[in-house]
Design a protein around this nucleic acid. Structure first.
Length: 504
DNA sequence: CGCATACGCGCC
DNA sequence: AAACGGCGCGTTTGCG
């Protein structure tokens, strides 16, 4: 048995040097993360100080003590199954994905970088002209001064930041878009600058000698059970952009392409392979329906209805056929908001309704889906009574603030409480699918023909050899749908293509 | 100069 | 004052 910290790194080394990897492993950091997923860092130093009440001396005796304490507690909290059957086997899967990486079309990425750079320069010139002076557009403080002090744009209804300056965030800029031509230029500038500085430029530096981009998954990176991705984060690649292609770029062959799609087109399949994205359909809402046992919600999923449309029909008391796109949009916001414990103010803000209307719709929602409200009430009560919440697999999060004397803190803990069992079970399902898929692909000797590349919370991205793609699609989608049984069907959508920007 | 913080924003 | 759960990251700004 291999026991220690950062076993993913050790296993990656073994894999890279072609050595066999041990079957039984115990990652001490991951174990402590299961015991409490909200620690700052899962290092021997921190854990020793907190759980053994001593300063870490680096001795084997102390490693052993940390291990034995964790092992005991994992049993005590009934986290064995999650730890030994999901998290530990997952380490090898993550190691494979990290070592393999995803192929990048560097030419495309460089061209995008260049086009973005040109647009940024052009926009900056226009913005300086409109402002009547040169300033740092990237500084929200300077921008706030230009917009609201120098140009005196009407700031009624805007929000202030902590430091007292009027906010220049996207919502504020959208609100004042009609009031001065400079605003639209700023919006476009922001979008282009983000794409270039966060994605197009740093990615070029991070591409390996193999022409592929290798992320690092942090298994102890979240409080809910999800994975996080860093250096680079491949879980927040833009999906679509708002800004249209500028005149200067229209001249070339990228016409019609969305800027974000152009970025995604830089992620490509190897020769002889295709990319395949497997996407869980509404996994969190299905989990919520299942956990709460809400009959209307369960019925909707059993009948494969459009869940947001169904919600709209209920909240607005109209037949399904009468639901307008606007009503569906509001219902969709409501569905997601409910998972997050959203209040009337936030709902009003994101949906464009008045706070009064927002309040009314939330009330209507909870009277239509009574079991959801009941379930949330039970979870909150559990958190207050015990100081923690668990999901169906025993995954645990401590929420001692649920009884905080500060209302804000207590409310925050309650929102985290109702979200964790949902987000956390969805995360477990994806992880279990990842482990099972890798096992089955190995059994079929398909590890080189169907390679798992990325996991993006409810989506798995594969690179699959063209000769087996149909078969592999069925196998993988089926495993994902059946790895964990809910009270409603679990559904997976599959899209394939030569690159990440054009999947069908 | 490095570091922490505020701000802003990309994703699910 | 904040008011929506979970992340990582780039830039600016102020501080030591």
């Amino acid at each position: 048995m291999l026991i220690g910290f950062d076993l993913k790194e050790k296993i990656k080394d073994l894999k890279r040097s072609g050595k066999k990897t041990p079957k039984d492993i115990f990652d001490i950091g991951v174990a402590y993360w299961l015991l409490n997923p909200d620690e700052e860092e899962y290092t021997p130093e921190n854990l020793s100080r907190k759980y053994l009440h001593k300063n870490f001396d680096g001795s084997n005796i102390e490693f052993d003590e940390l291990y034995r304490f964790a092992e005991k507690k994992i049993k005590e909290y009934k986290l064995d199954k999650l730890f030994y059957e999901v998290e530990m086997p997952l380490i090898g899967v993550l190691a494979d994905m990290e070592v393999l990486g995803i192929k990048i079309d560097l030419k495309n990425l460089k061209a995008l970088d260049k086009d973005l750079g040109k647009n940024i320069e052009d926009l900056a010139k226009i913005i300086y002209q409109e402002a009547g002076e040169n300033f740092n557009i990237n500084s929200s403080q300077q921008l706030s001064r230009i917009l609201f002090e120098k140009l005196k744009i009407d700031s009624r209804g805007t929000r202030k930041t902590k430091s007292g300056k009027i906010s220049t965030d996207i919502d504020t800029l959208m609100d004042i878009r009609e009031k001065h031509p400079i605003v639209q230029y700023i919006l476009n500038y922001r979008e282009f600058y983000k794409l270039q500085s966060t994605y197009a430029m740093p990615f070029q530096e991070l591409i390996g000698k193999d022409g592929r981009l290798h992320t690092t998954y942090v298994q102890t990176g979240t409080s809910t059970g999800r994975l996080s991705s860093q250096n680079p984060n491949l879980q927040n690649i833009p999906v679509s952009s708002r800004a249209s292609i500028s005149e200067s770029a229209k001249a070339d062959k990228t016409i019609g392409d969305d800027w974000a799609v152009r970025l995604r087109k830089s992620f490509v399949a190897d020769k002889g392979y295709k990319l395949a994205a497997f996407d869980y359909s509404q996994i969190e809402l299905r989990v919520l329906a299942s956990l709460s046992g809400d009959p209307k919600m369960i019925d909707a999923f059993n009948n494969d209805l459009d869940i947001h449309k169904m919600t709209a029909a209920n909240v607005f008391n109209i037949p399904l056929e009468k639901v307008t796109p606007e009503e569906r949009r509001i219902a969709k916001t409501l569905n997601f908001g409910v998972i997050y414990g959203m209040g009337a103010n936030a709902f009003a803000e994101t949906s464009g309704l008045s706070v009064l209307q927002a309040r009314k719709f939330i009330d209507e929602y909870f009277s239509d889906f009574k079991r959801i409200k009941e379930w949330q009430g039970q979870v909150k009560e559990h958190a207050r009574k015990t100081g923690y919440v668990i999901n169906l697999n025993g995954r645990r999060r401590w929420l001692l603030n649920a009884v905080s004397m500060f209302r804000g803190e207590a409310a925050e803990a309650e929102r985290a409480a109702i979200n964790m069992p949902v987000q956390g079970l969805a995360a477990d399902i994806v992880k279990m699918a990842m482990v099972k898929i890798n096992e089955d692909l190995k059994k079929k000797d398909w590890q080189d023909k169907a390679r798992m590349l990325l996991t993006i919370h409810d989506e798995l991205l594969f690179e699959i050899s063209e000769d087996i793609i149909k078969e592999a699609e069925k196998l993988i989608a089926n495993l994902m749908e059946t790895v964990y049984e809910l009270e409603v069907p679990v559904k997976v959508n599959v899209k394939t293509g030569k690159d990440w920007g054009t999947l069908e």
